[in-house]
Nucleic acid binder design. Sequence first.
DNA 1: TTGTATGCGTTATCAC
DNA 2: GTGATAACGCATACAA
Lengths: 365, 365
Amino acid sequence: MPIDTSSDASAAPIPLADTASRSTSLADVASLAGVSAGTVSRALSRPDMISEATRTRVLEAADRLGYVANGAARALASRRTRTVGAIVPRYGGSSFPTMVQGLESTLAAQGYTLLLSAPEHGRAHEPGILRALLERGVDAVALLGDEHPPQLFATLAASRTPFVMMWAQPDAHGASVGFDEHEAAALIVDHLAALNHQRIGFIGGRTGSNERARRRLRGLTLAIAKCGMTLSERALVETEYGFREGFDAMARIVADGLDVSAVVCGNDYLAAGALSALDHAGIRVPGMVSIASFNDNDFAPFLHPPLTTVRLPIREIGEQAGRYLLARLSGETPPPAHVQAVQLIARKSTGPAPQPQAKGEYGYP
Amino acid sequence: MPIDTSSDASAAPIPLADTASRSTSLADVASLAGVSAGTVSRALSRPDMISEATRTRVLEAADRLGYVANGAARALASRRTRTVGAIVPRYGGSSFPTMVQGLESTLAAQGYTLLLSAPEHGRAHEPGILRALLERGVDAVALLGDEHPPQLFATLAASRTPFVMMWAQPDAHGASVGFDEHEAAALIVDHLAALNHQRIGFIGGRTGSNERARRRLRGLTLAIAKCGMTLSERALVETEYGFREGFDAMARIVADGLDVSAVVCGNDYLAAGALSALDHAGIRVPGMVSIASFNDNDFAPFLHPPLTTVRLPIREIGEQAGRYLLARLSGETPPPAHVQAVQLIARKSTGPAPQPQAKGEYGYP
DNA sequence: TTGTATGCGTTATCAC
DNA sequence: GTGATAACGCATACAA
């Protein structure tokens, strides 16, 4: 996939050790407007400290010259960059973009720009990632999750950089935004219990490498125990998140001899894949539940049969994280403590547990 | 969803007009190492210009003090930020994150950081978006698409900022990376033609507001005409991308009286929704095709029945854009001209056109 | 309200 | 190979 540069208007020499004219600076605007550089600076960043007349004159001059402030100089002098760093690993093909969109939008509304680090795979914990952000002078940092090496927190503390952990637990060592996984699990389990389901299965993410998957499974286990239900060992699969993975997992559960009347999936992709596998197998499990709506393209209720879904506030996590950082950066009163459960929507489309016709098997309605 | 700050180690006063000790600077490292500031600077950024002995001494001192370079000062003096801006609208819930991940990874490998602007909806063209990036001193910019107001290009040119357009056409006024939509369409149409399909439908994005959707429809129209096939007006729907939208669109096509034997969908979400609608209606259309795999979670082949899919190199676009910018920034020879078609994978699972049992209706196999 | 002057921390250009 | 020293462009404290 070569690149098109045929009609390339941008093929001019790169502007590094600039040979030609430097770009217009405050001084240029100042001389055109007939004022001092300091006045221009104020007219641009503290409009209310300047007289109406000169302000318009300055603004006009700046406009005529196409003046663009030099952020580096501004940052050097003011000691702030109006920039926030985010470290969000494995980011494409996940639900994180929705969260980052929320973060970015919230920050952008206040003039902040997002510096995004999206390390692939296990590189998220490399010190260099955070360091690169700090060298860029980010005013604050948003991290995914709360499981990070101590050194990361030490570095953050040493640089006195405000930070927030997204999709994390309340007992993390620092500010965090998340939701109550246990409440989400309880909602699901209550729903299934009301429909007389007893033995259930779970297809979720890998608990070894994914803290969110781990919490989700733990919450489910607790809720199930509290209801006197059973989580089938044979129908408990850990896998990557994905449609194909859900398909394969459910296919395996079916092949092993389905001994559950309901299966909970860790997210919508897994669930959709699992449904598809059931369809292929000519089996319909009456209780199919997905915990997380994967993103804004919430397709669970349109599957056949529709899924019961718990909608997680992915985007809201990003927004809230942004609001927290903005508050910190503007010196406002620190936001309240503790993470609370959030909006959970259960679509009650799952049917009641049937009387199995043959042991461990459920046919079409 | 309040925020947890209970065990907050980051709740220290914000480091704005810093009252306490400034963070360690080059001078601090220099005095500890017993050299001049200039030497420290070189030891850190031009290791080969310094003697082995002093270099290690400097590095050790820097390490002991936990020195982190001040990017603002560095940018001011060196006139480069090692930062690249990206403007990618409507970010969550689309295939753009995959592309951005490719861009970010490629840039990060060379020490560049991505400044991400993800304007919601129509705000992508606002001059302020680009301006914010330029003020941050981005060394280069990556844009989504090639349809932007002239002023944007003018601003880019005035600031002599290298830029590249992603998912754009070769005849754009500037460097661009994309793929051949017409070739993708031709691949699909050839496939359907070989299976004797004659009349086909299309469910795609809104051509009024989405340049990619427009190109996709145009490519399809051309390919269909060339093969002597027919694009049914009644089975041509423009909608938002999404599962629900695909569902609704197909439901409408069915309600209007299906007069096609194949339906092409603009992306996998639309296709999956459309399949679901067919399932609900108890109808199976033998030719179901999706043009774009939505992202890495390529679920089309797992649907029932499986979709024939053309896989578009979304991530590769980002990677290639990153490589282009890196080449520009390092003064390398400009990459070759023209956009070429890319890897297209057709999964041949669509069946041949049947002899309709009743006019405009196709039953289950 | 406006002008003046200093400092921000680094790189780069000289000398040595 | 290393040390002074001058920009870099802006914000801001202080003076007017």
